[in-house]
Every structure is written in structure tokens, then in C-alpha cells.
Amino acid sequence: MKQSNLREYFRPKTLDEALSILNSYEGEIKIIAGGTDMLADDHKEIEALLDIDQLGLNYIEKADGYIRIGSATTYTEILNSDEIYENFRAIWDSASVVADKSIRNIATIGGNLGSAVPSGDAIPPLYALDATLVIKTTTEEKKVKPEDFFTGPRKNILKKGEILKEIQIPYSDGAFGSDFEKIARNSVDLATANIAVFVKIDEDKKISDARIALGAVAPTVVRADKLEKAVIGTKAEEEKLEEIVKAVEDVISPISDVRSSADYRYKVSRVIAKRAIMKAYDRAIGK
């Protein structure tokens, strides 16, 4: 949709140039990568756009002990990465159900973080996989955890003069598995509820570590810490989980909206928690 009050459009070639535009521009400026979320409505308050699609921030690279995903990497690029499919399955799964293919061709993972919509499918996997976000300013590179990055619905800590540069996710050793699940009204809808689960197992095939994050059921994505503790030592047995997953209700605080009532979100959060834990576990044991 046309942006009726937009006066300027910047599309720099380097990160430094981008940061200097951000610092010097005096009006309301917004960073876009794919722009798909931004252009879905007319943002009358925005006077300038800074398009970061030419900064070379679309990459998926192995580093020492972790993977680096550039913030302007599209979902299609993520889906084309074997590295992500093999090691960070929850991210791959979430990318495969974001909107539809023609959106995924241009929408980016960083964009989803920037928009900070509580239902953003790319977000829970970053919590579950212990990601670190790298923020660039003219003077420094800051590292923050997702837990500290998001501050509310459509809100994050990014200040003017800061660009989300990349996402770093540590590789796991041993046997591990992850999964992403989503409930929506149809195939292209935003999530009514979503969840990402990461588990590691020990030699006895018991869960030794777990990270679980739920989306669309609180002002930001939330970690289900009690549930994480409760699954440790189990083999994700269905009957046990049935009881254990009730713990998600302690951390979520869903609202009622046009997609769903709070009550429904409570009910299905448990269901997808169980489903995702079992799937992640099955992947960990190589099933």
C-alpha cells in the first residue's frame, strides 16, 4: 500500500553509510528489509525509509561453535539451507509456515524481529535455540538475548541509530532435537498460538536440557521455565507430558482477539507444547 507521508527513501550500500543516515536523519525514519510488514498498512507517521537489502546482510555462515544468520536473510534463503535444516530445525520449521511463499521470498528473519509482533513465527525458535542478537551502532556491536530484546507487542529495545545485524545460534553437541508448532485459523493466518522446543538427551535417552518458548500468548514470547525443568529426566512419555504441560499456563497470559479467545489459547498451548516436546525428542533420539 502506498505510504502517503513518506518523503525519503534511502538504500545505502554499506552498513556504515546506513548508520550514518540513521544518525543524521531528523524525522521519523524506519528500517525495512523486505518491507512486507511495513507496506501492509499506510504508516502515516513514517517520513523516511532506510532499506537495508543492499548491505550484504543476507548470509547463513558457520562460525566457531555457532551459526551466523544475517538479519536481511529471507525465509526462502533459510529454507534453502541444509545447515539450518540439520541443526536448527525449529527455525526451518517456523520459516516454512510463515505467511506464504511469495512473502517468504522477500520477508526477512530480521524483519520479523524488528516488527516484534507477539505472534511472529520466527521468534520462539530463537529463544528455544539460545540465540544471541547482534546490534550494530556506529561505535559498537552489542549482543543481547531475545529475552532482553523484546519489550512488548510491536516493541523492542532498538533505538534510533541501531541496526539489527545478525543472529548467532550456538551449535549443540551430543544428541538434540528441536521443533516448531503453530495453531492458526488457516494456512496463511498469523499464529493463534505457536511454540518452539529444543531438547538434549543423555546416554539413557533422558532429556537432560530443554528450552521451550511460546508465542502469541503473552505480550512477548515467553519461556516456559517450569515446564523446561519438569521435562528434564523424562523420555517425553505421552502420559507424563499430559500432566506436565499444564505448567505452560503459569507463564502465558493470552488475550482474546478476532483470532481466538484467551481460553482457546490456554487450551491449545498445552496441546502444542506436548506435540512439540515429543517431536523434538523424537528428533533427538533419531526417530
Binding site: 501492509a40 506464504d100 485459523r185 488457516n186 494456512s187 496463511v188 493466518d189 478476532v258
Partner: peptide, 15 residues
């Protein structure tokens, strides 16, 4: 409350 195709959904080919 849902005056758009993002709020009012029409079934897609995948549905």
C-alpha cells in the same frame, strides 16, 4: 474488527 483478508480469511489452496 476484521475488515481485511488478513483478518477475514478465504480458504487457500492448502486448506
Amino acid at each position: 474488527k476484521n475488515a481485511s483478508f488478513a483478518g477475514f480469511h478465504i480458504l487457500t489452496v492448502k486448506d
